[in-house]
Amino acid sequence: MPRYGKLIGASLGPGDPELITRRAWAVSAVRCTLAVPGEKGRGRLVRTGHRRACGIAVPDDAEQLVFPMTRDAEILGKAWARAALRTVELLAEGRDLVFLVEGDASTFSTFGHLARVVRELAPEVVVETIAGVSSFAAAAASTGSTLAEEDETLAVIPAAYGVGVIDHLLDEFDTVVPAQGQASARRSH
């Protein structure tokens, strides 16, 4: 039975190198296998500009794991299975694998899907998730805004829900934040 490396989801935050946590920076600098999410047919490394902006150099030997931008459950399931299988193969070499994540690894991230399927394939794999600064929290801080105070309610929704649901959700929540740092909507009091 192989001795697996650890699967680490390293949150890079919203792109400002000063907002990367010390832990994410440290694991990205250690000699280990780096993996990045990408889309099929869009080049070897998709969206490397974010990683460069964060000050993380993506080496030529980084592993690209394909996660198509679709809501089709069958297509996604197959992609997650392929990516998880490749991840388990890499982890079986005994080295840690750091999966670089834009934003936060636990918020609307492909890392959660990857970790779940890896655990199904190899339950003995240790998974670590390094929290990051979410883009919506960084946007609120940079504008001096608050997302919620005291007993106010806050909803964070995937951008895929579309703008049409925001008006409805504002009847139920004080603040609605579409994922990926898009502008938040706030009910006036």
Rank of each mutant, 00 (worst) to 15 (best):
L121R: 14
D16A: 10
V125M: 11
M1Q: 11
G94Q: 09
V46H: 00
T107F: 07
I56Y: 05
E150R: 04
I8H: 14
A62I: 06
M69G: 06
T48H: 03
R42Q: 10
L169M: 11
G94T: 09
F136Q: 04
E63F: 15
D61A: 15
T129G: 00
A155L: 15
L85Q: 15
S109K: 01
V127D: 05
K40M: 03
L12W: 04
T107H: 02
V58E: 00
I130R: 01
A35W: 03
Q180H: 15
G15E: 09
E63S: 11
S184Q: 12
L76C: 09
L45Y: 01
V46C: 00
P14R: 01
C32L: 09
L97H: 15
I157M: 13
T87A: 14
G112A: 04
V46S: 00
E152R: 02
Q182G: 10
I20Y: 02
S109F: 01
M69T: 13
T107D: 00
A155E: 07
A148E: 01
S106K: 02
P178M: 09
I75L: 13
G43P: 00
T107S: 04
I75D: 11
D104C: 02
G15I: 04
I166R: 02
E102S: 05
I130L: 09
D16P: 02
D151W: 08
G94Y: 07
A160V: 13
V133L: 08
A137E: 02
F67N: 06
E102G: 07
A183Y: 03
V117C: 02
E63V: 15
G15T: 10
G9M: 05
T21M: 08
V125L: 12
E102D: 10
S145V: 06
P37G: 00
A26P: 02
V30N: 03
Q64D: 03
A84D: 08
A179F: 11
P17C: 01
L147R: 04
A57L: 05
D96S: 15
V127R: 08
L169Y: 07
V88H: 12
V177T: 11
D174E: 15
V88A: 11
L97I: 15
I8A: 12
V126F: 07
